[in-house]
Simulated scan of single mutants.
Amino acid sequence: MAHERGGQDRDQRPGVQLAWLLRRWWEEAGSVAGGTRPTQQALAARLGVDQTTLSRYLNPKHASTAPPRVVEALHAQLRAPEAELERARALCRAAQEENGRQRIAGSGPESAARPDAENRTDAPSGADADADAAAGTEAVPGTDGRDASGGRSRFRRALPGLVVTAVVLSFAAGMVVHERLAPDGRATTAGAAGAVRAGKAPYEWPLLRMKKEDQYTRGRALQNLLNAWGYKVRADGFFGEDTHDAVMDFQRKRHLAPDGKVGRDTWPELVRPVGPGSEGFEVLAVQQLLDNVGQGGTVVSGKFTAVTAEDLRFFQRTHHLPATGRADTETWMALLVHQLPPVAAPAYQRSMSPVLPSTSA
């Protein structure tokens, strides 16, 4: 790695320094006691970004543009040294400030148009990407400046056509939104059936029902939401008789079919708007769900903090939702859909013991 150290010493830009640091975290992940280095493909899936984007973040040949939430999530996922997190944050802030100054100036080697150009020219081809994934790593994008002048000329020639295409697509998108307006004038982006995202398959509310198995984070979110409505059930993830009875009572009061199942009709009535100033069981539910979507740890406190808002905005941006930093119906649905398979009980849950349903008739 001596030649890499030399390259790092020659280029002191914060974005390049950040790329070196993130790259080292990934390369050394397997050396941590009990840890294994994930492939970039697997790591990208955990972070909610595409593999090409993650490869660029970890490539020291380019100034990394990794946002703060990705940096923190990488630190958590790769179990990097705790002492290095603050340095990574500082490099990330400095890189963002440098990029901002260059965008304002509109010139320089790292101008605003360059990252997108790198995405287009450096993305690995299908065969190369498949070979890299099979080998347990990914291709590092190519060198800067390759056919740069020709690429800029082609871009200038293609610009008028791109503008026309953008106008046509915007008009088509407007027509789709218009057709999806409900009779009362509200866009039906979230509802009983599911949330519709532009260019994406609709989300569907998960179905929970009474059973002996632990239903993990979704089960605890359900129970905390029931508690937010005044019920008293233990938020342990086990959908027992007490949870079932509370669901049926809630359904009757909301004029829903009292079947004790929580799906497309019951979830939209259960979830509550959560944002700055909120606290209580509904905030616990949001934080627990955020803590289990693979973007790094979220503090589960029951109080909606500025960090909770930033975590929400990062999740919303990642999943093509309006980045409001508030949990509306559509965000609730996306959080429930994107829960990771359980690995181990989180720290705030370890003191709880399961409460299984009664076997009495």
Rank of each mutant, 00 (worst) to 15 (best):
E28C: 10
R23I: 14
S31F: 12
R37V: 09
Y57S: 03
W25C: 06
H62L: 15
L47A: 05
N59I: 09
T39L: 07
H75Y: 08
T53N: 08
P38I: 02
Q41N: 15
T65N: 09
L58I: 14
P68C: 13
P68R: 13
W26R: 06
G48W: 01
T65H: 07
A45I: 02
A29V: 09
R24H: 14
P60L: 07
A29F: 08
Q51W: 05
R46N: 09
E72D: 08
L58N: 02
L43D: 01
T36C: 11
A44H: 01
R79W: 04
V71T: 11
P81D: 03
E27W: 05
Y57P: 07
K61Q: 15
P81N: 06
A73H: 06
S31D: 15
A80Y: 01
E82L: 10
W26G: 03
G30E: 10
S31K: 13
G48E: 06
V49Q: 00
A80H: 00
A83E: 12
A29T: 06
P60W: 00
R37Q: 14
T52Y: 02
L78G: 00
V70S: 05
T52Q: 08
H75M: 07
V49M: 00
V71F: 08
V70L: 11
R46W: 03
A76S: 10
R69K: 13
L43C: 05
T53H: 08
G35S: 13
S55W: 00
A63G: 07
E28H: 11
E72N: 05
S64G: 08
A73T: 07
A73N: 01
N59S: 15
A76W: 03
H62E: 15
V32H: 04
W25Q: 01
T53E: 13
S31V: 13
E82F: 06
R24M: 15
Y57L: 08
E82P: 04
E27P: 01
R46Y: 06
G48S: 06
E28Q: 14
L43V: 08
L54F: 04
H75I: 04
A76M: 04
L54P: 01
Q41K: 14
L74R: 02
Q41S: 15
R69A: 14
T52R: 03
V32Q: 07
Q41P: 14
E82Q: 13
V32M: 04
A66E: 06
E28A: 10
